[in-house]
């Protein structure tokens, strides 16, 4: 009986820990599939041999173009290349109808965050992989894990629910920006990164 009685708080503690560490992350995030699949690896490196900048260009005025528009895809994909179902659907539903793909962007930050790619790429000489990891060599788009409360991707918080960073590119919260900037740029103000 005493053992059972002292088990109650331990069971409670275990339940709480279980709820916080295991149940909560699964409940907090919902997975959404991308509208169509995209194979980065097939386009880069040994595939089509393109570099990141070929599609995700920095404009003349230094503005980052983000995800290319459908017209840029159409330059090669006016007709389906290969016979995959995904490719056929992509060409029929988006390219031929000149409709933009509503991609779910893993790296999307809230509107009030300002991130100039050009400064980080040209001045700080950061490689794309530093922040985006191996995304450029992935062979498919993993499901988008959407935070049910804030609506943003799990990638922003990082894969660990505890916020423990395993890789430089794992998690892009303000603290992650600061941790780098506190080393490389001490002349910072709120307005530098907020709009």
């Amino acid at each position: 009986m005493t053992i059972t009685r002292s088990l109650v708080p331990i069971a409670g503690l275990a339940t709480g820990l279980f709820a916080g560490w295991v149940v909560f992350p699964t409940v907090l995030y919902t997975t959404v599939d991308q509208p169509v699949q995209f194979n980065h690896a097939a386009h880069t490196g040994n595939g089509a041999g393109m570099s990141c900048q070929d599609c995700h260009a920095l404009g003349q005025d230094g503005r980052f173009a983000g995800i290319p528009g459908i017209h840029q895809c159409a330059e090669c994909h006016e007709e389906p290349i290969g016979s995959s179902e995904n490719e056929r659907r992509f060409v029929e539903e988006y390219v031929q109808q000149n409709r933009e793909v509503p991609w779910l962007v893993y790296a999307r930050q809230p509107d009030n965050a300002y991130f100039p790619h050009v400064v980080h790429v040209h001045k700080a000489k950061l490689a794309c992989e530093t922040c985006h990891g191996k995304h450029g060599s992935s062979s498919g788009l993993r499901p988008y894990e959407m935070n049910r409360i804030s609506g943003y991707s799990r990638d922003i918080w990082g894969s660990s629910i505890a916020g423990i960073k395993s890789q430089a590119w794992d998690g892009m919260k303000m603290d992650d920006c600061i941790s780098c900037h506190s080393v490389h740029n001490n002349d910072r103000a709120c307005i530098d990164c907020h709009k």
């Binding site: 230094g62 300002y114 100039p116 040209h122 307005i191 709009k195």
Partner: peptide, 15 residues
Amino acid sequence: QSRLHTARERAASTG
């Protein structure tokens, strides 16, 4: 300030 951002991006793109 957003125009300052744009100006800084321009500066960075030309080094």
